[in-house]
């Protein structure tokens, strides 16, 4: 199992590359949707990315702010699913 820091790094890189926002602007606690970094399309891409890269399945009922609002939240969600 990969470390949380590595998960966060992969997510941050994906968000930065997909949204064309500099990586340093995507901090662990940055609210990626509230701050307008990601839209609907970005959200779908993000779900697809974490399902492919971390071999988890995000159910519709799990598409919540607490699981997706920031790099921190996403990493916690992935860790929870992997456990």
């Amino acid at each position: 199992m990969i470390e949380t820091a590595e998960i966060k790094d992969k997510i941050r890189k994906f968000i930065a590359e997909t949204s064309f926002v500099p990586e340093e602007k995507v901090q662990d606690e940055t609210l990626i949707f509230v701050d307008g970094i990601f839209d609907s399309m970005g959200f779908l891409s993000l779900i697809n990315f974490i399902e492919d890269h971390f071999q988890i399945k995000a159910e519709d009922s799990e598409l919540l702010e607490e699981n997706f609002e920031s790099v921190d939240a996403i990493a916690n969600f992935i860790a929870k699913k992997q456990n």
Partner: peptide
């Protein structure tokens, strides 16, 4: 949009 995400800060998922 399947469920209303009206009160969420997440964008809707198609």
């Amino acid at each position: 949009i399947k469920d209303s995400g009206l009160y969420s800060n997440l964008p809707p998922v198609f």
